[in-house]
Write a protein that binds this DNA or RNA. Structure first.
Lengths: 317, 317
DNA sequence: TTAATCATTAAGTCCATCTAGATTTTCTTC
DNA sequence: GAAGAAAATCTAGATGGACTTAATGATTAA
């Protein structure tokens, strides 16, 4: 349908004219109230009636009377004008961060620790500010951010991702997610308070997604301990990695955010010395000053992360 | 506020452009879908952003991205377009008598017998067809009908009212409302099966509103019986007339629609011979064929009146 | 009957919107 | 890295819709 074909839309200005005629009783009075000539009002309403193919005005003495069609139409006009008024109010409220939708791409593991609590608090504090969350791995998160599909991404560094000082983005560090060793409960080191990674040089290793930060961090940690891990298995899901350990297939490293595990025969043990970790941060496009809504979500994420950090996952300096 | 001042209304066509840009992703695609040039879409959206004083589009690579403001606006646009769609549907349904409002002016006494039951049935059968009722005496009813304030009047003939064959109106007879004599229970004739009016020639009479049909009918009935009643009291409300009889102030005639009375010491007795009566009818303007909604209400009134007529108030031939 | 009020029509003016072409920016490809 | 393609925007000019003025017809009031 073409944009100027009849019936494409209804001109709200004409509805306004009709409403004014209803309230003031005559075309002339409506025209005067709107600073128009009666001729203009008459022509516009005749045009509206033609577009809709219904009679709107009937002659009544030397004045006019609204038809039943016109009254039906006006019933909706009131609703539409009210909706427009709400739209206008919401546009203003958007600038104050009271109304709007902020789209967030997040690491699945960050939902429980950060995004979920933040959304719960925001829902209570600002009911008209909606957060729309979606899962994304680090690659997908940055891609969605670049494409404008999301306003905020909660993610970690990954190979090929933007550098920390990339001017196209603004970051807020949220929490340091420490990686622990995952061992079967029968493993000789499973009961230790910490584990020296070097002692696991001879084990069969289970690695995460090679595109993910965890795999690289694990490799680096092993390299620092002086060996290259013998990776026999790859998984994308942390749960699958834990399941493999549970089955005795090998050992691995798992971020604390993905814990606790649901396998009774698996133990997680902190790494001895400086812990391998990944920094979870929120990142936004840095073009111009962010919307108030986005700033509020970021601030809430920072608050929630700070509380969480005190509890379980100390930031490394 | 002038009709073309900024903020008077929002052009729905521009909202439609914005929605198309949202769905298709680019200005060019939206323009193509609407058979316009990209230039036109760009200019219109720039104008909308200027009118609303909010940014709607941001540059994103070589394309554009919608701002948070734009998404807030579009949330309302969906609601508005849905409302417009409903308006269009209702305009069509009006012609089928499914949707609309019919305004009725009615004799107060006709509500219980005719209009009330008709409204109840219509509410069940056609929930979207609304009847708006208001009280009116015969003079006010015709005046409201002429002024276009109501579509139907339920009334009776009155002095100065339109003649039965007035071409400006169309009538539908509803019920013949017979007038009975009202007597105090101690009156010697109060226990009779009928009363000969001539026997009441010496009584003090209580009359209704002189502008009302009842007063004229009573006068005529008395004249036919060979006397002119000695009217000592006038009332507008039937209830007041009955109260006067109850107080022993005199006798009178009361329409059957106003009965039963709430005074225990008052009796109503039919007039002997041809009963004085007033014809209750529905009347509409006769200019052009009535709206389907109005016709449906009239038809329902006729049905209800026919049923009522069988029960209590036989039509005189 | 005359005058006044109201709506509508006809004709002309003016402004918003559209098209066409040029420009700028950005992405892709060689 | 250069060239080309794609996208949006800008400018200028054309077009159509909306408004005004003036005239007409109908109705009411005096």
């Amino acid at each position: 349908m073409s944009i100027d074909s009849p019936g494409f839309t209804i001109d709200l200005r004409k509805l306004r004219l009709l409403r004014e005629v209803e309230q003031r009783g005559t075309v002339a009075a409506a025209a005067s109230a709107l600073h128009l000539t009666p001729s203009a009002v008459s022509q516009q309403l005749a045009g509206l009636a033609r577009e809709l193919d219904v009679p709107l005005l009937e002659k009544q003495g030397r004045g006019v009377r609204l038809t039943g069609h016109a009254r039906v139409l006006l019933g909706h006009a009131h609703a539409i004008e009210a909706q427009l008024e709400r739209a206008r109010a919401d546009l203003a409220a958007f600038d104050d961060g009271l109304v709007g939708e902020v789209r967030v791409a997040t690491l699945p593991t960050a939902v429980a620790a950060v995004l979920g609590p933040a959304m719960a608090q925001l829902r209570a504090e600002r009911p008209a500010l909606r957060v729309r969350a979606r899962d994304a791995d680090p690659v997908g998160a940055i891609r969605a951010l670049d494409a404008g599909e999301v306003d905020v991404a909660i993610t970690v560094d990954h190979p090929g991702g933007p550098r920390r000082d990339d001017p196209r983005y603004a970051r807020i560090d949220l929490i340091t997610d420490i990686l622990d060793v995952v061992l079967h409960e029968d493993h000789p080191l499973a009961r230790g308070r910490t584990v020296d990674l070097g002692l696991l040089a001879g084990e069969e290793w289970i690695s995460g997604n090679p595109h993910d930060a965890c795999a690289a961090i694990a490799d680096n940690a092993c390299a620092a301990a002086g060996f290259i891990p013998d990776v026999r298995h790859w998984t994308v899901e942390y749960d699958a990695l834990a399941a493999l350990v549970s089955a005795g297939a090998g050992v691995g490293l798992l971020p604390r955010l993905a814990q606790p595990l649901r396998f009774g025969n698996v133990r997680t043990v902190p790494v001895a010395g400086p812990p391998p970790a990944r920094l979870v941060y929120a990142i936004t496009r840095a073009g111009r000053p962010a919307d108030a809504t986005t700033s509020i979500v970021l601030q809430k994420l920072r608050e929630v992360a700070a509380a969480r950090h005190d509890a379980t996952s100390p930031l490394v300096p």
